[in-house]
């Protein structure tokens, strides 16, 4: 079809550059595998993640339990797979909240300028003053740990980076001639913001969103590790890790595998994010 070649060639160009970056491809592969696993957890794990088997407590890795069992005899592999679902869900949704708020704030501040910019920019500065992890800790301690609370709070404390990025992009885009042309044609503010500025500001946002997922997964793991994140018996990588630390001398696999999973996932997102950044803007590679 002739009318898709245009859209594709811009996209394909970026995709081709991305596919030449081996680290980014590896990161993308990790994320893809995790995504598939977390969407169909029951398909990949035979065992029930909550089934307690007191006869097989702290069993070392074997053919029945490839990653061993925890102190209640639950299958660690199965818990990890179900935990992947929770961790990725938290990562994606909180990043989605943060990106949406950041986009809105950044577009308003950058486009309208003046007092709107002053208010939003100072608000960003104030939000950045809080050590965000401790802010999240205290809010969760106050509201009670539930997955929804955790996602909302991580989202509400993580939008400032996106907002600054979008504000800066908007400031430069709104001076471009095509925005003046749209205004001369009679387009209103809403059309200019959403049809002309937003699509051109999305590339760096995509990068920051990818890195944001990694950050949110880390925060969720940290919260769960401290016991105020996802609550047992719901498995998440953070609470599997924390449950394992009591028996780390006798059953090292309890802590090693969730730790590795967090490491690999976060690394995967960071590599992909940096890969996208380089693919979208090849000049950055020179740095």
């Amino acid at each position: 079809m002739a009318n898709v070649t245009g859209a594709n060639s811009l996209f394909l160009d970026t995709a081709r550059r991305l596919s030449r970056n081996r680290l980014a491809v590896a990161g993308g592969a990790v994320i893809l595998v995790l995504a598939v696993v977390s969407v169909f957890p029951t398909f990949f794990s035979g065992a029930d993640p909550s089934r307690i088997d007191t006869a097989n407590m702290l069993a070392s890795p074997s053919s029945v339990h490839p990653l061993g069992t925890d102190k209640l005899g639950r299958d660690v592999l199965s818990r990890m797979i179900h935990g992947a679902h929770i961790s990725l869900q938290v990562g994606f949704i909180s990043m989605g909240i943060a990106t949406a708020i950041g986009l809105l704030m950044g577009l308003c501040a950058g486009y309208y300028g003046g007092w709107a910019d002053a208010v939003i920019s100072r608000f960003i500065d104030v939000m950045l003053c809080f050590p965000s992890f401790f802010l999240i800790l205290s809010v969760i301690a106050f509201l009670g740990p539930s997955i929804v609370n955790i996602m909302v709070v991580i989202g509400l404390t993580g939008w400032m980076g996106v907002a600054r990025l979008v504000r800066a992009e908007t400031l430069s885009l709104k001076e471009r001639d095509f925005v003046a042309a749209a205004r001369a044609q009679g387009a209103g503010d809403g059309r200019i913001i959403f049809r002309h500025i937003l699509p051109n500001a999305l590339a760096p946002v995509l990068v920051s969103a990818t890195l944001g997922v990694a950050g949110a997964i880390l925060v969720e793991s940290g919260l769960s590790f401290l016991g105020i994140g996802v609550q047992p018996p719901t498995p998440s990588w953070g609470n599997i890790l924390t449950a394992g630390k009591d028996n780390i001398e006798s059953a090292w696999w309890l802590s090693l595998y969730p730790g590795l999973a967090i490491l690999v996932t976060v690394l995967g997102y960071n590599l992909l994010g940096e890969g996208i950044q380089e693919a979208v803007d090849p000049r950055l590679k020179a740095r």
Binding site: D177, F178, A181, P199
Partner: peptide, 27 residues
Amino acid sequence: QIVFQDPYSSLNPRMRIRDIVGEGWLV
């Protein structure tokens, strides 16, 4: 209406030509 100096920055890179030239008709 106006015609701009820089033919690169005056066309939105994310829009098809028909939407660029037809924006006035639409709005």
